[in-house]
Design a protein around this nucleic acid. Structure first.
Lengths: 256, 256
DNA sequence: TATTATTGAATTGTATACACTATTCTCAAG
DNA sequence: CTTGAGAATAGTGTATACAATTCAATAATA
């Protein structure tokens, strides 16, 4: 038995982060997606016990996932009072928007420099999916994919700290859209995304940056003060994946 | 091993930002300071049980603290293998340096716009302390205070996301200095810090940004990031000790 | 009726027991 | 002497019990 070989062989097949190995990654990803797709409205209480039941894990795991989300400012952790989906204020929204301009400019420039053909193809695929989602009327997926476009761009920039920061900013922007964008204005960012891809293909850095800045302007302009309260029912939001709690592993007493 | 951690961490010092309320904040702050003041070297193993004994809390608390540190990239959490103080590679160091330029430029501009007299006084006090520490020969405190200067600047920028990002970048920079700063070049950043304060007082944005960029250049130059291009090529890395193949490796005798 | 105390349920905070994994140690084979 | 397999050990991963705190409902008082 060669365990090393086994390890090497089994290293492939990792799909988009969350490997089935660690449970809190799965929980994290599900809650994260639910928030980004706006199935969980800002302000929704995230009860540890309820989430534990839904995902079939103990509060320990839920706690870790919530902690990660809190670090990305997607969730607010109030001591002794539990977690809620973050509700960015207008002032916070303004700060996030400003920070994004700083970061997106740098990312766009780096991406133009470093983008490979394969990465650009990935980018195009994301935008196509995004457009398909909006066409299908799946606004939630569309908004999530729109965010992933900006994350893919950050990935192409080849700078880990900027990528991490971008992840947090994009998530929070999604929250802001959920809170302040009037319901029916479809996001329609895919058109601007397509133009960006063209500029990147042509390695036209100046044009790409200009497009990105305008794109961010448009996002800001679409926001206003209406709020549409989405769901607050955790079980409903996650109904498609509620499962039975794992049978407690047989606890063999250590024979004396 | 346990005793070594005990000695390093329990050195009485300032534990700023430790809201005495929750225990894991205290633990977090102590470990954070120990790393920033370079009493914990990059690569040091951080055993949960040992830390629990040292701080008189359960592993639960230690785990949370380590998790927070890992989010800020100050600690590396290896699944099933425990936590170690992060060891930024040269490539990571370059990326961090780049990201800092982006962020510090924005922060400097914002700080010039928003700085109040009181905040500038705070800034000045930090630099005085920093200088005093270096004069006393307390390099650890000096480096920590140098970092706090940049954090205070970020605070003055009035932008929470940028402040958070800056916190992570400054911490990692401290780690990089610990790992890569060439020999005895004392940090001596306080001189440039003082010039920056002057420019901010005069609301001279252009000058302040220029000083900041030069300051970051100097930091980089004191490190050995310039060339070298450390590779994944083991033969290159260990070329100085490659021996004739036939030479039988002398096995060290077991002590005791 | 409005306001404040008090009590009890519900939820989070922490410690700890057990399960699982990785590392170290020992020893046998080449 | 080196290499590799298997057992012993140490350390992390997860679940759960219990303590501490918050929240809600009721009762008491003005």
């Amino acid at each position: 038995m060669n365990d090393r070989l086994q390890n090497i062989i089994s290293q492939d097949g990792s799909v988009r982060g969350a490997k089935s190995g660690t449970q809190d990654d799965v929980v994290y990803a599900h809650i994260f997606d639910a928030i980004l797709e706006q199935r969980l409205a800002p302000g929704t209480k995230l009860s540890e016990e309820a989430l534990g039941e839904i995902f079939g894990v103990s509060r320990t795991i839920i706690r870790r996932a919530l902690s990660r989300l809190a670090h990305e400012q997607v969730v607010l952790l109030r001591p002794n009072r539990g977690a809620v989906v973050a509700e960015p204020s207008l002032e916070e929204a303004r700060q996030i928007s400003f920070a994004r301009r700083i970061v997106e400019r740098a990312i766009t420039e780096l991406a133009v420099d470093h983008a490979t053909a394969e990465q650009i193809a990935n980018l195009q695929r994301l935008v196509d999916e995004e457009q398909a989602s909006f066409d299908k009327g799946d606004r939630g997926s569309g908004i999530r994919l729109s965010g992933e476009f900006h994350l893919q761009l950050a990935l192409m920039a080849n700078n880990a700290p900027l990528l991490n920061f971008q992840r947090s900013l994009v998530s929070q922007t999604s929250l802001i859209i959920a809170r302040y964008e009037s319901g029916n204005r479809s996001h329609c960012s895919y058109d601007e995304h397509n133009q960006l891809i063209e500029a990147i293909k042509k390695r036209d850095k100046e044009k790409a940056v200009e497009l990105m800045m305008h794109h961010l302007d448009h996002i800001d302009h679409k926001l206003n003060l209406q709020d549409d309260g989405a769901s607050g029912d955790l079980h409903a939001v996650f109904s498609h994946l509620i499962k039975e709690r794992k049978e407690p592993r047989s606890r063999k007493k250590r024979a004396g």
